[in-house]
């Protein structure tokens, strides 16, 4: 105590924090804690409500809904396996396409291929893609994209129909246009976060790579990509999460047909599209079933994110 007083009386400009400072500090901490916990509570509340509404459906139809393949309101049969399949298939296709282009764009915009100004302009344009409303993507898909890809789809269908992916013809909406639009929609996310990952590489690593006598491509492929792997992986998981939950554009483009097909040209359905299209006219039982489907969707997204976190932990990919 004596020491503390002598500290206070010293001639230095430094002083211990005043009571007011301490109070503000404590208030700030409490406030942040409250905000954090209220978000957790909100999430729990949503889960509780949706889960609660889904219980009647689980009681009546059981988990058989997960493996059932027909959805017939009049016959009161509800199966969501085609939707689960469609959700995963469209998201994976979108992830492959969007991931490839997103990472390529990130490389192109961070590895000194372009003058600084051009980099900034292009970056902003790609970020603008994220600002386009989902329904506009849907319209664009119907009126622009589908007519463009139809001849391409026909070509693949006639010449490569022995490959399961091209075994049917594209009659309009279907998996491929949906996945293509979805990939454009996740592109800004993947590109932006991968760019951050590349920018976060310390200059000394770049120097080390070039110092070893790498050409630019060797530096990118052998050093930059592995170094940014953690961030890129995070970008892909986030993009996949977005793709899984995307609703409007898919409802317009995927074809809303309850079938399971490997063919990318066949119409299909996704969980989010099922929810969006069936809620308006749903009766009590159907609402309960839809709530169950919503829970499944939530679970899938959660699993994907947890799996991502796990892989990052296990492989020790550094951010």
């Amino acid at each position: 105590m004596a020491e503390y007083n002598s500290l206070q009386r010293s001639q230095s400009i430094s002083k211990p924090p005043t009571a007011g400072d301490m109070l503000a500090n404590r208030a700030f901490r409490v406030l942040t804690l409250v905000f954090t916990w209220s978000i957790v509570l909100l999430l729990a509340y949503i889960l509780y409500k949706i889960g609660g509404r889904a219980i009647p459906a689980v009681k009546e139809y059981g988990l058989g809904m997960l493996v059932g393949t027909t959805w017939d309101v009049n016959a009161r049969t509800f199966g969501i396996l085609p939707e689960i399949w469609g959700t995963l298939y469209s998201s994976l296709l979108a992830l492959i396409l969007g991931g490839f282009f997103g990472v390529s764009i990130a490389i192109f915009l961070t590895q000194n291929f372009l003058p600084r100004i051009l980099e900034t302009i292009l970056r902003s344009i790609i970020e603008l893609l994220a600002a386009i409303p989902s329904v506009v993507y849907g319209l664009w898909g119907i009126f622009v994209l589908i007519p463009i890809i139809r001849p391409v789809a026909d070509f693949f269908n006639t010449h490569f129909s022995w490959i399961p992916f091209f075994s049917t013809s594209l009659s309009g909406p279907g998996m491929f246009p949906a996945a293509l639009v979805l990939s454009i929609m996740i592109l800004p996310t993947v590109a932006a976060i991968s760019q951050d990952a590349f920018r976060a590489i310390p200059h000394k690593i770049t120097e080390a790579a070039y110092g070893m006598g790498t050409t630019r491509w060797e530096a990118i492929l052998r050093v930059m990509l592995p170094t940014a792997a953690g961030g890129i992986f995070g970008a892909l998981v986030l993009g996949l999460g977005r793709a899984l939950g995307e609703t409007m554009a898919l409802a317009m483009l995927v074809g809303n047909s309850n079938q399971i097909s490997l063919s990318v040209f066949a119409p299909a359905n996704t969980l989010a599209a099922l929810l969006a299209l069936n809620f308006p006219e749903a009766g009590d039982t159907e609402i309960s079933v839809l709530m169950f489907a919503a829970c499944v969707l939530l679970l899938i997204t959660l699993l994907v994110n947890m799996l991502g976190a796990l892989i990052i932990n296990k492989t020790g990919i550094k951010r």
Binding site: A209, T215, T227
Partner: peptide, 19 residues
């Protein structure tokens, strides 16, 4: 690139690759 392959360099800050 050929020059750097023949004339190696060690930098002030250790900079091993993340591998």
């Amino acid at each position: 690139v050929a020059v750097r392959r023949n004339i190696g360099m060690v930098f002030q800050q250790p900079n091993p690759f993340s591998m």
